[in-house]
Each structure stands twice: as structure tokens, then as C-alpha cells.
Simulated scan of single mutants.
Amino acid sequence: MYSDPFTMLVKVICNLYLFIVLLRLVLQLTRADFYNPISQGVVRATSPLILPLRKIIPAIGRLDTASLVLAFAVQLLTVALVVLIKGVSLSPAGYAIYTIAGTFYHLLDLYFWAMLISVILSWVAPGASHPGAMLVGQITAPLYRACQRVIPTLGGLDLSPIFIFLTISFLKQILGPYSL
């Protein structure tokens, strides 16, 4: 998969932190339970970098722009480190494209996995009260509601996850060449 183990290690570490930052952004957008233990862990992991940014960058409505800026900064750092390790050159426009597209690719990836977990939980443990299950439900509920406005359930069968997966997969195919 990767020709250079050091590059893979840098990508894994940076993308893991990017995932945590994006999770914080999504948790705030969906107004998920702040007192959930997983939410508290995400807040603790991201607060040292987000709190100073909040003093400079105000929120726009429900959108925590400090989290978004941090996500772009982490992705830019990932791109810069990979470019440095590989020894290739990239124009400023290239950095911008890889940063923006890569961040949105990873956001789609986060939603893909949340949807997958949600679907599996609906089969295995519907209505589970585990903090992780409740958090996944709170993250995916807005997607389900938006899709169900367009595609109604058919005799108790909810087809919205299929269309959400198709949409996420389509968008990931478009952004895939620009993700690291």
C-alpha cells in the first residue's frame, strides 16, 4: 500500500488527530451530548489547540470556525510533511487543493464509518444505551432526517442509509485523488 513506512507513520498520526478534530467539529454541529465520556475525551484532546484559536477566530452560528481552521491546519501539516518526505514540489495552489479536498475527504470518511456503525448497531443492538452508540446516533441523525425528507420509508424499510452511502462514496471518489 505505502512504499515508505515513515510516510505511512506520519499520515496515520496526522490523520488520527485530524479525525479527532473533525469529530469535535461534527459533535458541535450536531449538538451531540457534551457530557458523553467520548465527547469529553475529544474535547480534552483538542482543547489545547482550539481554545487559543477561539480567542482569534469567532464562531459563525453553530459552526465552530476554530475547529475548522485547526482541521485545515492539521491537513496542511500532513500535506507539507508528505511533500517534504517524498522530496517533491507543490505549488501554493496545490497545497490549498490538497488541504481543502483532503479535509473534506476525511470528513466524509468520518461520516461513512459513523453510518456503518449506525447500521450495524440498528441490527445488533437497536436502542443501545452505550455512550458510543448514543454518540453515533446523534451524529448520524441529521443525515437520516435530511435523506428521509426526500426518500420516505417503504413499509417500515428505511432506504436512507443506502442513498447516504452512495452519496458519500460518490463524493469520496471525486475527492480521492486529492486526499493523503
Rank of each mutant, 00 (worst) to 15 (best):
R24P: 01
R24L: 09
L25I: 06
L25F: 15
L25M: 15
V26Y: 02
V26A: 14
V26R: 09
L27Y: 13
L27K: 08
Q28S: 11
Q28K: 14
Q28V: 06
Q28N: 12
Q28P: 00
L29S: 02
L29D: 05
T30Y: 03
T30R: 06
R31P: 00
R31E: 14
R31S: 14
R31L: 11
A32R: 06
A32Y: 03
A32Q: 02
D33R: 01
D33H: 06
D33W: 01
D33G: 01
F34P: 01
F34R: 13
Y35E: 10
Y35W: 13
Y35I: 02
Y35D: 11
Y35A: 07
Y35V: 05
N36Y: 03
P37V: 04
I38A: 04
I38L: 13
I38Y: 11
I38T: 00
S39Q: 02
G41W: 06
V42R: 04
V42W: 14
V42M: 11
V43W: 08
V43S: 13
R44F: 13
R44V: 08
R44D: 11
A45L: 12
A45P: 09
A45R: 12
A45G: 08
T46E: 10
S47Y: 15
S47T: 15
S47M: 11
S47H: 14
P48E: 08
P48C: 07
P48Y: 02
L49H: 03
L49T: 06
I50W: 04
I50L: 13
L51C: 10
L51G: 00
L51E: 15
P52I: 09
P52A: 05
L53T: 09
R54F: 07
R54G: 04
K55D: 11
I56A: 11
I56W: 15
I56P: 04
I57G: 05
P58C: 03
P58Q: 02
P58R: 10
P58F: 03
A59F: 00
A59K: 14
A59T: 10
G61K: 07
G61A: 02
G61T: 05
G61F: 06
G61P: 12
R62H: 02
R62Q: 06
R62T: 03
L63R: 04
T65Q: 00
A66R: 05
A66L: 01
A66Y: 03
S67W: 02
S67H: 10
L68C: 04
V69R: 07
V69S: 08
V69M: 12
V69F: 12
V69Q: 04
L70E: 13
L70I: 02
L70K: 00
A71V: 11
A71R: 13
A71D: 10
A71K: 13
A71S: 13
F72T: 01
F72D: 00
F72R: 01
A73K: 08
A73C: 12
A73P: 10
V74L: 02
Q75A: 04
Q75N: 14
Q75S: 07
Q75D: 12
